[in-house]
Design a protein around this nucleic acid. Structure first.
Lengths: 335, 335
DNA sequence: CTGAAAGCGCTTACAG
DNA sequence: CTGAAAGCGCTTACAG
């Protein structure tokens, strides 16, 4: 690879001058600028971003902290948004190889060692030790789906409460009065916000909150199926089910069909996420669309703003959601 | 962040000496080694890998070239393997932000600019211009699922032909004699190798190859459904279907059920990939397991071998596959 | 408008 | 065993 010295020699100028044309400094004569550009062309010169980063204390690199698997459809879709937002930004994405089993490992130090300019975090347990380090550091950070702020850290998440609320209301408008909720594991604020959406949804529809209509599972297909099994065992079976994920909704549907009932003729089901399964697998799922892709995009836009502007205050963004009606919800049967 | 100078001053030695203990040089007295390590502890010093990389012309970074979406389940699983293999290797993964719409963009230059030590490529069109650049460059490269070799480039793929062969044989052993194949788009060598597996499978079972039992689709759910629709319209409907992807198999199953038939009572279906849908969605899919995760792991192991050993000749690896029998295949009905 | 010099945080012959 | 010096490929005051 040609270096800046080679270009300087070829163009008959100093490296300082080459650097100036590289960085669009105005105080270079047109003539030398042309000569330098010619030399760059001829030598196929490409500046070494690592060397540049060393002096500018920048790397034009965004680190990602995630511990859940890439196979998680939510994660995959988020990454897709992140990738797209990065495409023309001049930044590359680096997935730091974390070693949390090693007690000496420090994510922050890893970031510093790599001169990472900012970090986007998602799919990480709330109690991961890196999170506190990040909050108190001066490394620009965007959390996704965790309501955490710090000196230079903001977050972005779906408006979870409203989202579930919409699902409940949709079922109510179809005539359903017995509406159950299959929640994800309670604890993380996301899950609690969604549960609150279920409660508020019932209240605003004038329905009462029955504890045996609340089931909890781990967001999986099998978890959704098991939860549905318990709901079907109730004397007073619900006719409308709101789920906290698409996967658990598919599990619930499978269980319903296994019991000889059909969706949506007997029971309506609403999912959550609108991952690509929702439109790919059959029946196509009525679900609340989290704008995951768009969340991915915005997380990067915010992160870059934080990186490039010291005075940018850490953003907190609630992304709206919308209900997408497909094939799994229908009018309630008349009792 | 403390630099190597700070450590040197704290320990009362030269930076050269600090560097030596950092790199485990033997010619350092125990006493100074201890002093230096103490200073490192106290200052929470972490060497700057970027600076080190500048002089060693290394980055301890592996670049990834992929253009298909992260939401592709094959891609997600591969990345999971890659991530795992990288975890304790000392390398981080960087997803280069490619700009192929820009005619001046060069992936190779991008790699050089970032001092990337090696590249793993998958999910890229065969005619992507970077591929040829890569083959002729001295950048260690591993291609996944593309049979391409170069000066310092090898590849790893599933033994596709044998894999499909196994699916055909499985159906034959269950008594099926009318076995159709729903292929993926022909052209890429992967698809052709699989088709050849179908042909050979038929031959070794003493069955003849009927062109109307060959359908082609784009690996998707809808594509599989459409292909199945055409097969069901035949006078002599096949009783066993081998598909080139799990998704198209699910599409086929959906179509079969839509026609009032059931799987596997009326028609048996074999998928390909064993992505996590296969065990999550119902009916659980009989499918050929591509060891995608393991391919991901090995691709990185080979890549690191190529990086760290100039004389390592580019590996070509055919990963074995195995048939996983679940719920979608059964004995052929007696005619 | 141009370039010599110092410096970013490291490593590595080399001399002592 | 230890350290001064040069250098990796850049950028940036600063002097001219």
């Amino acid at each position: 690879m040609a270096s800046i010295h080679d270009v300087a020699k070829e163009a008959g100028v100093s490296v300082a001058t080459v650097s100036k044309v590289l960085n669009d400094y105005p105080d270079v004569s047109d003539k030398t600028r042309k000569r330098v550009n010619l030399a760059i062309e001829q030598l196929h010169y490409q500046p070494n971003v690592v060397a540049r980063g060393l002096v500018k204390r920048r790397s034009w690199t965004v680190g990602v902290l995630l511990t859940v698997p890439f196979t998680n459809p939510y994660v995959a879709e988020l990454l897709e948004g992140i990738k797209t937002a990065l495409e023309n930004s001049g930044y590359d994405l680096v997935r730091l190889s974390t070693r949390f089993d090693d007690p000496h490992y420090s994510f922050i130090k890893h970031c510093r060692s790599r001169n990472v300019d900012g970090v986007v975090v998602f799919g990480v347990e709330r109690d991961n030790r890196s999170i506190d380090e990040l909050i108190h550091s001066d490394i620009p950070t965007m959390f996704v789906d965790m309501d955490i702020v710090g000196k230079r850290a903001g977050y972005i998440t779906t408006d979870n409460q409203n989202a579930i609320h919409k699902g409940v209301k949709h079922l109510y408008e179809l005539g359903h009065r017995k509406i159950a909720y299959i929640s994800g594991t309670l604890g993380p604020s996301i899950a609690n916000m969604r549960l609150e959406g279920y409660r508020q949804g019932l209240i605003s529809c004038g329905l009462s909150y029955l504890t045996n209509y609340l089931e909890v599972c781990d967001y999986t297909f099998d978890g959704g199926a098991a939860a549905m099994r318990r709901l079907l065992a109730l004397k007073d079976t619900p006719t409308g089910i709101v789920c906290a994920s698409d996967l658990s909704a598919f599990g619930a549907i499978h269980e319903i069909e296994k019991h000889g009932l059909s969706v949506p003729q007997d029971i309506s089901v609403v999912g959550f996420d609108n991952t690509y399964h929702a439109q790919v697998f059959k029946p196509n799922l009525t679900t609340v669309n989290q704008n995951i892709y768009s969340i991915g995009i915005k997380s990067i836009e915010c992160l870059i703003a934080l990186i490039e502007n010291r005075d940018y205050s850490p953003p907190v963004i609630m992304e709206p959601s919308e209900l997408i009606v497909r094939q799994t919800t229908g009018k309630a049967k008349l009792a």
